[in-house]
Computed example of a mutant assay.
Amino acid sequence: MATQTTPAHQDAPSSGRRDFLYIAAGAVGAVGVAGAVWPLINQLNPDASVLALASIEFNLVGIEEGQSVTIKWRGLPVFVRHRTQKEIDEAKAVALSDLKDPETDEQRTKSGHEQWLIMIANCTHLGCIPVGESGEYNGWFCPCHGSVYDTAGRIRKGPAPKNLVLPPYDFVSDTLVQIG
Rank of each mutant, 00 (worst) to 15 (best):
C144T: 10
S55Y: 12
R83I: 02
A48Q: 13
V28D: 03
C128E: 06
T6D: 13
A12R: 05
V37D: 10
K157S: 06
E87R: 03
T175R: 15
P161G: 06
P7K: 06
I23M: 08
H145W: 03
A30C: 12
I41W: 00
A54Q: 13
T104W: 06
C142H: 06
P7L: 11
K110I: 02
A2S: 14
H113N: 10
A36W: 05
D11T: 14
G127D: 06
L117T: 00
K100E: 11
P102H: 15
D174K: 14
T3L: 13
T104C: 05
G139N: 03
V28P: 00
Q107E: 13
I71E: 02
V78S: 01
G127A: 14
S14L: 14
E114W: 04
V37S: 10
L21P: 00
P46S: 09
E87P: 01
F58N: 02
D101T: 02
T151N: 11
V165S: 09
N163Y: 15
A25P: 02
G153Y: 12
S14V: 11
A48V: 13
Q4L: 15
E103K: 15
S147T: 04
Q43A: 10
L96M: 08
K100A: 07
G112W: 13
Q43F: 00
G180M: 04
V172L: 11
P143D: 15
R83F: 06
A34W: 02
Y137N: 01
E65Q: 11
T151Y: 10
G153M: 01
I71N: 02
C144L: 10
P7Q: 07
N42V: 05
Y169V: 01
T109L: 12
V148L: 06
